[in-house]
């Protein structure tokens, strides 16, 4: 068989047309809404009605999920291992707290300001992760995370130092929805932000930009050879991820009315990596699935062994890697793609 079909002009053009039709179909299929996506959001709403006593932990999950989804843009798409993603989460948390304390109690404003501030930090620090190897990137991201923690610690007059930031209460969302004692409004607010954030990042994932990020991760040398400006793309992706990480931090502040210096602690950067790895990288929803599992496991562990749960989180990491995390996170591929079984290849 010949590799290159030697066809007459007529059949060649008709086969080209067939190829175009199939290509268009395949591309549409790529970005089609998957079955599990719908399940996730239905479950999120259902939880509101079915588990009214679990609002706090559900809120925690939603916040962690947004944080993890934002990391996926950096890790799962651009392929950058970050040990300091919590720098953006923490900054967002403090900014939201300071906004509520000194300026505007309205949460959405605080959320946006926090996102922008974290985005600026992301933009500034993204230039430091451009060069060098994985090792230098680990050092840089870890260093930036630690530096932020140190800044918060040193500027106690602003941040409350080790005592954290308190004494503010977020106002009604958009001036309409007051936070309630049971955290119901807070939960809906967080799920809403998570939904919007995930949808935005989903659009990005299926855009030419998202494709080029995966190309940079897959083969940086070749991606340059098809004219992908790698550095620029990484700067943009890192900045966007920082915005959403900052928003996740702001949500934590607004739903708990407190900022603890713990928001900048190293273990948060490690936790969010673990979350993403449990759920699987590179398809955004891994952050959500991972956040659910991680929070439940951590909650269970901290009941059994309140002081030493860190040991088991560590054990989990070690086992996860030794078993092979690919094998674990591949389960998503076995979920049905859509409701009907019809294949349209």
């Amino acid at each position: 068989m010949s590799v290159l079909p030697q066809e007459t002009t007529v059949s060649a053009s008709s086969s080209t047309a067939a190829a175009e039709t199939r290509a268009a179909k395949l591309m549409k299929r790529r970005s089609r809404i998957r079955f599990y996506e719908i399940i996730v959001w239905i479950a999120a709403i259902a939880a509101y009605f079915l588990l009214p006593s679990k609002m706090l932990i559900l809120t925690e999950i939603a916040i962690l999920a947004l944080f993890a989804v934002s990391l996926d843009l950096v890790l799962g798409f651009a392929g950058i291992v970050s040990l300091g993603h919590t720098a953006f989460f923490g900054l967002g948390a403090y900014v939201a707290g300071l906004m509520a304390l000194h300026f505007i109690a309205e949460p959405v404003t605080g959320l946006i300001v926090a996102g922008i501030t974290s985005g600026v930090l992301g933009l500034l620090t993204s230039f430091l992760i451009l060069r060098g190897s994985d090792l230098t990137r680990l050092m840089t991201t870890l260093g930036i995370g630690l530096m932020m923690a140190e800044v918060a610690n040193q500027m106690a007059w602003l941040t409350g130092g080790a005592d954290g930031l308190s004494g503010f209460s977020p106002g009604p969302i958009l001036g309409m929805f007051e936070f309630d004692l049971f955290g119901k409004v807070g939960y809906l607010y967080c799920v809403g932000v998570l939904f919007i954030g995930t949808m935005i990042m989903r659009r990005i994932a299926f855009s030419p930009f998202g494709l080029s990020l995966k190309a940079i991760k897959g083969n940086p040398m070749r991606s340059a050879m098809v004219a992908v400006p790698g550095r620029k793309r990484i700067v943009t992706a890192y900045t966007i991820a920082a915005v959403f990480a900052g928003m996740a931090g702001a949500l934590l502040t607004q739903t708990t009315a407190f900022v603890s210096p713990d928001v900048l602690a190293f273990h948060r950067s490690a936790d969010v990596l673990l979350v993403l790895v449990i759920g699987g990288t590179g398809y955004l929803y891994g952050g959500i699935f991972g956040a659910i599992l991680f929070t439940l496991v951590k909650d269970w562990l901290s009941v059994i062994t309140p002081q030493y749960w860190m040991f088991y989180i560590g054990l989990l990491l070690v086992i996860l890697v030794l078993i092979g995390r690919d094998r674990l996170s591949r389960w998503v591929e076995y979920l049905p793609e859509r409701f009907s079984k019809k294949e349209d290849r």
Binding site: Q307, M310, V321, R325
Partner: peptide, 20 residues
């Protein structure tokens, strides 16, 4: 990434065990 996750896991275990 695997190496990082694995060794962070070891760190966490070491910290908790030492604390214990």
């Amino acid at each position: 990434l695997d190496q990082v996750l694995f060794s962070i896991g070891i760190v966490f275990m070491a910290i908790a065990a030492t604390d214990y």
